[in-house]
Write a protein that binds this DNA or RNA. Sequence first.
DNA 1: CGACGCGTCGTGAACGTTCACGGCCCCCGA
DNA 2: TCGGGGGCCGTGAACGTTCACGACGCGTCG
Lengths: 334, 334
Amino acid sequence: MSPGRAVPPPRPATIKDVAAASGVSRQTVTRAVNAMPGINADTRERVLAAARELGYRPSRFGRGLVKPPTRTLGLLVEDLTNPYYPELASAVLRLAAQAGWNVVLAERAAAPAGGDFLTERFGADVDAVVSFTGLHVPARTDGLAELPIVEIAPGPHETAHGRVDLDLSTAIVEAVAHLHERGVRRPVVLDLPGGSGRAAAFVAAFAARDTTAMRVPTVSTDLAGGLETAGRVLTEVPDVDALVAFNDVTGFGVLRALRLAGVDVPGQVRVLGVDGLAIGSFVTPRLTTLALDMPLVARTALEVVLALHAGTLAPGDPGTRRRVPYRLDVGEST
Amino acid sequence: MSPGRAVPPPRPATIKDVAAASGVSRQTVTRAVNAMPGINADTRERVLAAARELGYRPSRFGRGLVKPPTRTLGLLVEDLTNPYYPELASAVLRLAAQAGWNVVLAERAAAPAGGDFLTERFGADVDAVVSFTGLHVPARTDGLAELPIVEIAPGPHETAHGRVDLDLSTAIVEAVAHLHERGVRRPVVLDLPGGSGRAAAFVAAFAARDTTAMRVPTVSTDLAGGLETAGRVLTEVPDVDALVAFNDVTGFGVLRALRLAGVDVPGQVRVLGVDGLAIGSFVTPRLTTLALDMPLVARTALEVVLALHAGTLAPGDPGTRRRVPYRLDVGEST
DNA sequence: CGACGCGTCGTGAACGTTCACGGCCCCCGA
DNA sequence: TCGGGGGCCGTGAACGTTCACGACGCGTCG
């Protein structure tokens, strides 16, 4: 209508501004904007024109105050780029949607270290939080009204929040039994540079079967780390007959190293991963791995956090601590 | 304090309830809950106890109305399980966080067909939307105040919203040139069951180099589809020397089929994917593919949607239409 | 003894929207 | 002519929170 677009006001336009501009009352503006009945077609057009002109957009806060409330869950993951996390995120999204909740997603990797990350990142618009990062979420010590938090993390940990413990122990025993039955006697376990409980558990499980497993630190737990470390192991431990990778992505690197070296998998060397990534089925041979039932993890975490939110469960209640075991998923690499 | 936990009130407790329960005013409750100064330590404890007892949690709407507003972006993707989408989602998350925006994520795959998906899914808590699904987002025809929407989708399309066109055309020409120079003369293009512009463009590009490409429909565009279709092609077209997969995941299936058949890649048959998935580097040989610069896509979409939100750009403005080309990413499979 | 300051707390107003209700006008039928 | 009804529109109140300001009591100092 007007030649130039109206300059946007410094302060965002409210429903009153639109009402004043079109010479009607607030209620009539509401009727026009929300396509409600009981309004003349001409006035509706006039009001909508004014709204467009002013760049009016209804405030979701004013609205949320009056309408039946929307529930929003904050989901904090480490890094979406790592295929491990989208699988959980997807499961959480579906279940949350089913329960009528929205999901705000944030990556911890993209955040400044320290600081009260939760409130800083999610601000005033989440009603509960599920955290799936390596880190422990500290309980707030200042004021105040806690919002329900559930952590998903490996192993048990003392915390004031709800918690889903991801338990590798039984699966490790199972996997070692599987490898041992296949004749593995000279296994090598890839480890973090600083060592880890995970690798220690593998070594212990092998020891229980009178087999000594070597621990070799990787430079990194990504593809390159697996590639480089596996290559080194092949020359230093020529009679190795199994490689336990720290995770699936590292395992992919191991597979590639073995292939480059002309080593047959699983004929000469067997390879085991940890994670159970869906994309594990993209590589050849399909990786045997310790897998997590991600939909189950998501369901468990949501159960707890929704119960906390509803007040059915109190913080500190034993019911806020759950355990989800890994299970052995036999592919073609062992 | 009390023996049993107080029964949660049918109506969620407000700040007034807490004030009444602890015999102070609203403002004092605010001071306690928000850890503000100017309150006696004893009263603070008393108020916080009452708040816990009542299960009080401050309303983010009431709060949002008063405090400087938080901006929230709705990101709609097709399916997080498909590795294609997390790469974009991750890029959007980082850039949005940098701009001080939150991101609400939703999957279209998890939604009921039809219906006003946007408002239904995001409810009253997004300020703008970026949509990255196959589908076109219909413009609302009823009332009302539009919220800024940007679609990311292949090829141009008439729409009232902002738009980022993903353009394969130049990359297809480039890829075909690459294959042709490598000596490809009997290419087969995997296609959707119903046919597609993408496959047609490949055929046309080959034709421009006096090479006739066969089109073969796949049953599905996942790993199994690539596996099965490539197997069939090998028997029906024994002298095939290149396979163009519809996307990367299908390409992984093709690679596996060729490996099972003992066909050397790229020696006997060259394989091309489309998507440029980061996980393409996990397979051996690394897939040559038409890749998208996802951070660039994210940056472009955010630029447009933020400008629309700020009013810098008006809907329908030519600046709301952008183009991002695919580029050829040469791996080991061609 | 009065003024002043500090620590602690309460009161009205404002944020932007929708809901429930009531009022006006005009047309129609008795 | 009057009553009634329907179409259209406006007014107060409410949602839950925070901000700006003022009030009260007590101790200290001039």
